[in-house]
């Protein structure tokens, strides 16, 4: 399953709830304000790095760039574009949006 998270983890618990309910091996894509979760050196970084042992983390490049954090992404988070988002939605059997 592909999980999308569009909320900043500094403001909302969507990412936390997603991480608590996603099956091991799932793909998690950060979009919109969700991309702030991919910010390196933040208080969330350790949690994200830990999550990356269980899940594959992706972040939407256009959203990272728009927010000025494209060069501050945690190592190992895969940056993709909208075409990559479409591919992920196809490769996974369903998509769950954690709003």
């Amino acid at each position: 399953m592909l999980h999308t998270v569009n909320k900043s983890p500094f403001e909302k618990n969507s990412l936390d709830t997603c991480l608590a309910h996603a099956k091991e091996g799932s793909a998690i894509l950060l979009i919109e304000d969700g991309v702030y979760g991919a910010l390196n050196g933040s208080k969330m970084t350790a949690q994200i790095q830990q999550a990356m042992e269980k899940f594959t983390l992706y972040a939407l490049g256009p959203d990272l760039k728009a927010r000025g954090i494209a060069d501050k992404v945690i190592d190992g988070v895969k940056v993709i574009d909208y075409a990559g988002f479409v591919d992920l939605a196809c490769e996974n059997d369903k998509v769950q949006a954690w709003l």
Partner: peptide, 14 residues
């Protein structure tokens, strides 16, 4: 809940 969600075909989020 993880197991239940994995069983689904369509997940509607609110």
């Amino acid at each position: 809940l993880t197991a239940l969600m994995e069983e689904q075909d369509v997940l509607l989020s609110f």
